[in-house]
């Protein structure tokens, strides 16, 4: 296999890891919202294994980019972009771990909204991964993916506002400490879409740098 083919293969494996981790994150979050913390912990361990695997791929990618002098003009941008994806998986793992430890009591009336905000966040991350593939394979189609990431992030933002208002206006949750805890998780689940949006913005900038 040529050096650039081997690097392409390594990036492909890395993106598959990120994609799998985001799907498992969604499942883990749903388990936690149903108070099924045993299954959520299993998902957490799965994400931890995938994250380790992704880290190994990322190290290989970095080595091959620099050792074989592939795309020297863009390699720093490529590495930054892939590192942004690693941050998303890292945050996802931490959120699932924390929710398994704290086991917050989510009111039934808000569970659907919590699932929706997690789906919007994971949606943003999934579209971002597709966009990263396009960045390498067909850079001219990138804007479409970036626009969709923005769309999902906006959706997550709207849900975040809605959930926060519900938390502080409902009588179901009385203790201020619990209100703060629920708000904290609402922000954490929306964070994935924020990270995806930030990475998408950077990716667009890297594309502009490559335009003649």
């Amino acid at each position: 296999m040529s050096k650039s083919k081997s690097l392409q293969h390594e990036i492909d494996l890395y993106l598959k890891c990120i994609s799998r981790a985001s799907l498992i994150f969604l499942e883990g979050a749903k388990d936690a919202f149903k108070s099924d913390y045993e299954d959520a912990e299993i998902r957490y361990r799965e994400i931890a294994v995938i994250e380790k695997d992704a880290d190994n791929h990322l190290k290989k990618i970095q080595y091959e980019l620099y050792a074989y002098n592939i795309a020297p003009d863009s390699r720093a941008d490529i590495f930054e972009l892939l590192d942004d994806l690693d941050d998303i998986v890292d945050s996802a793992k931490k959120i699932i771990f924390q929710i398994c430890v704290e086991k917050p009591l989510i009111p039934d009336s808000m569970k659907e909204d919590y699932i929706a905000i997690t789906e919007a966040s994971v949606g943003a991350a999934d579209i971002l991964i597709q966009g990263v593939r396009a960045f390498f394979e067909d850079i001219n189609t990138l804007e479409g993916y970036v626009d969709n990431v923005y769309l999902y992030e906006k959706k997550a933002d709207n849900l975040e506002e809605k959930i926060k208002k519900s938390i502080f206006h409902t009588d179901e949750v009385k203790e201020l400490a619990r209100k703060f805890q629920l708000r904290y998780y609402c922000e954490k689940f929306a964070l994935i879409s924020d990270l995806a949006e930030e990475a998408a913005k950077n990716m667009l900038m890297y594309k502009i740098k490559r335009i003649i």
């Binding site: 392409q8 592939i70 960045f135 390498f136 394979e137 850079i139 001219n140 003649i212």
Partner: peptide, 19 residues
């Protein structure tokens, strides 16, 4: 400039191959 711009916008090519 316009020839290269047209080619780069209309040919689907992997970044590493283009490099």
């Amino acid at each position: 400039y316009f020839i290269f711009k047209y080619l780069l916008e209309h040919v689907k090519i992997h970044m590493f191959r283009l490099d």
